[in-house]
Design a protein around this nucleic acid. Structure first.
Lengths: 156, 156
DNA sequence: CAATTAGTTTAATAAAAAATAAACTAAACT
DNA sequence: AGTTTAGTTTATTTTTTATTAAACTAATTG
């Protein structure tokens, strides 16, 4: 694969990956910024480079970048003798993706618990099913922590 | 807790749970329908009851119900001598919540793999980080299946 | 200290998504 | 056959979300 081909494919990947973040609830421009900072070979992008590369307005860029920074997804550095901000993705904790999903499962779990709590008949069809979901989620959530420890031990 | 209190709380839970489904990407009305069918003691709701309970138009109800049925989240039964549809939540596979998250992690994994593939320098800071994420995700995804088997054995 | 740079903020517009009203259809009564 | 019931469909309106243009601010530079 030639270098131009590779770069073309990277830019395509920024678009599809951006749409994936979109589905995660990111606003579209935020998604594409994260994808840009993740996919391209360049690891530091200035404000202007982002505006230029993604063809967006300065306002949109400013907004999305602030939001991404506040969510600890990206960060910026400044360089001496240059008052531009240089943005890059934060190399967050290795398990953050897992933890994100764990958190969502935890939210589901508490809804299910509250639902069961409020059932008049704890043995109705739905109540029984909810109980079995609660049990299963509890099992998995506990195991996740064990898996993390196991993984860290294996990789040291 | 009196019965009226309980029902009041159930109705509140329908609203908050509906918003949770909203964040999952459901359209608002779909979320509240699923929540209604999950939370209330009544396990079968007719079209009209749903329209009445959630104060929505017939069109919205029809649309959301079709979508939910096509996604296998709810189902309806018909009763002899009654041409109304009676809707209820489907008691889907116990692991479907887990599988949903697994699927999302798989999507993240393939994006990361493609990203790494397209990196010019496989040892740049980002590339290294992406490699470690790929490795970790692979580990967890494999373990999920083992956990499911383990869980089933324990519960038989 | 006037001009330029690097963004931010705000007010307005555009685009997308959600919801409704009302007309419509198909089945079942009478 | 005409009427009622149980939804569906469609065209429109409302609401929300995203985006931009342009004015603005604070820091730097000549």
């Amino acid at each position: 694969m030639t270098s131009e081909e590779r770069i073309k494919r990277q830019k395509e990947l920024v678009e599809t990956m951006g749409r994936m973040y979109d589905r995660k609830g990111f606003q579209p421009i935020s998604g594409r910024i994260v994808a840009l900072l993740t996919v391209m070979d360049k690891e530091l992008f200035t404000f202007d480079e982002i505006v230029e590369e993604l063809q967006i307005s300065k306002g949109s860029a400013s907004n999305a970048l602030r939001m991404l920074e506040m969510s600890n997804i990206i960060e910026y550095i400044t360089l001496p003798g240059d008052r531009k901000k240089h943005f890059r993705i934060r190399k967050h904790d290795k398990f953050s993706l897992i933890d994100e999903h764990k958190e969502k499962l935890n939210i589901s779990l508490s809804f299910l618990k509250e639902t069961l709590d409020l059932k008049a008949d704890k043995n109705s069809g739905n109540a029984q099913f909810i109980r079995s979901m609660i049990d299963m989620l509890g099992y998995f959530l506990e195991k996740f922590e064990e898996l993390k420890i196991e993984y860290l031990q294996k990789n040291n």
